[in-house]
Amino acid sequence: IEDEEEKVSKYQELQARLPPVNRATVKALISHLYCVQCFSDTNQMNTHNLAIVFGPTLFQTDGQDYKAGRVVEDLISHYVVVFRVDEEELRKQWEEITAIVKMRVAGTASGTQHAGDFICTVYLEEKAAETEQHIKVPASMTAEELTMEILDRRNVGIREKDYWTCFEVNEREEAERPLHFAEKVLPILHGLGTDSYLVVKKHQSMEAMMLYLASRVGDTKHGMMKFREDRSLLGLGLPSGGFHDRYFILNRSCLRLYKEVRSHRPEKEWPIKSLKVYLGVKKKLRPPTCWGFTVVHETEKHEKQQWYLCCDTQMELREWFATFLFVQHDGLVWPSEPSRVSRVAPEVRLGSVSLIPLRGNENEMRRSVAAFAADPLSLLRNV
């Protein structure tokens, strides 16, 4: 086909016929080659040279003619039109590759360039073009260090009780997870999907959670929550089932689910260290309350399982989430530097005893809750 417009139209038609995964793979590869040729003055790899190298490899030819190379050259030259790349996506690609080149040049000049560094986009407070920052993330960088670097770049001062935190946001699941301050960022970045990103913002619930942790007794949490398992109907990817009342016990080793308070054997049990807890439940599941969280468990075979839990009140949600953080990170919920920790409130108690005893083993706690549900005054008769 000699006519350029007709040729581009044909390429668009052909790539649209590809399965989604193959189409995304081709776009990612051509996008990379497009970025490479943008810096041909430096790397000597213009469109023609790239086509010579990648044409025979991609199309499995013997390289005796230039047909395969011509296709690759066309795809690179017409990348923006063929793959319908908008200005925002193109601008972001250009800024990222420019940032990489600048950092590499600076690192080479100073002798501080490290292998394994990763360039990522992080937003401040909200996802918007004017709030994004391109950050070099070495393997050793923690969520706290990333947060501090973003705030320093934007000259944001930290006041008392400002709990600035880096969040992992999953737009598809409509959920977000505040990263623990000591959590390494690089593994998180490698696991992010196309619908996820990192944003630095204030953790609005952290002060309330810290107060709760300071006043609580023991290191376990138990109670009723609405529960739904993420299952597919007949393998079609359609959600099945609804939310049901279940009794949960969370301790330092695991999260256990019981059908009811009086049950002796858990229906499910998950090791606490392997769980990722996200605030929020996607609306299409019709959660019974707006105070829910999504729990993700990755098995030894790297298979992901997902559950949705809903609390009756915002206070309950904060208490559960605070306990998750506490037991997962051995009590280190927030860094101990004076500039980043608010004053801890004194222990708060209503009267001389708790309405429901919080000490004791799990069987004793279940019996206490069951007795209280049957006769709320029974626990107070001997007081």
Results as ranks from 00 to 15, higher is better:
Pro338Arg: 07
Pro338Tyr: 06
Pro338Leu: 09
Ser339Glu: 08
Arg340Asp: 09
Arg340Ile: 04
Arg340Leu: 10
Arg340Phe: 08
Val341Tyr: 07
Val341Arg: 13
Val341Gly: 04
Val341Pro: 02
Val341Glu: 12
Ser342Ala: 14
Ser342Lys: 07
Arg343His: 08
Arg343Tyr: 05
Val344Arg: 13
Val344Glu: 10
Val344Leu: 14
Val344Pro: 02
Val344Ile: 14
Val344Cys: 11
Val344Gly: 10
Ala345Phe: 01
Ala345Gly: 02
Ala345Leu: 04
Pro346Met: 00
Pro346Gln: 02
Glu347Trp: 00
Glu347His: 08
Glu347Gly: 12
Arg349Tyr: 04
Arg349Pro: 00
Leu350Trp: 03
Gly351Gln: 02
Gly351Phe: 01
Gly351Ile: 02
Ser352Asp: 04
Val353Leu: 13
Val353Arg: 13
Val353Pro: 00
Ser354Ile: 00
Ser354Gly: 10
Leu355His: 05
Leu355Asn: 06
Leu355Thr: 06
Leu355Tyr: 06
Ile356Pro: 01
Ile356Asn: 05
Ile356Leu: 11
Ile356Gln: 02
Leu358Val: 09
Arg359Cys: 13
Gly360Val: 04
Gly360Phe: 03
Asn361Thr: 10
Asn361Ile: 11
Asn361Phe: 04
Asn361Cys: 09
Asn361Ala: 08
Glu362Arg: 12
Asn363Asp: 15
Asn363Phe: 12
Asn363Lys: 14
Asn363Cys: 11
Glu364Cys: 14
Glu364Leu: 15
Met365Gln: 15
Met365Arg: 15
Met365Phe: 08
Arg366Val: 10
Arg366Ala: 11
Arg366Asp: 05
Arg366Asn: 08
Arg367Tyr: 13
Arg367Gly: 09
Arg367His: 15
Arg367Ser: 14
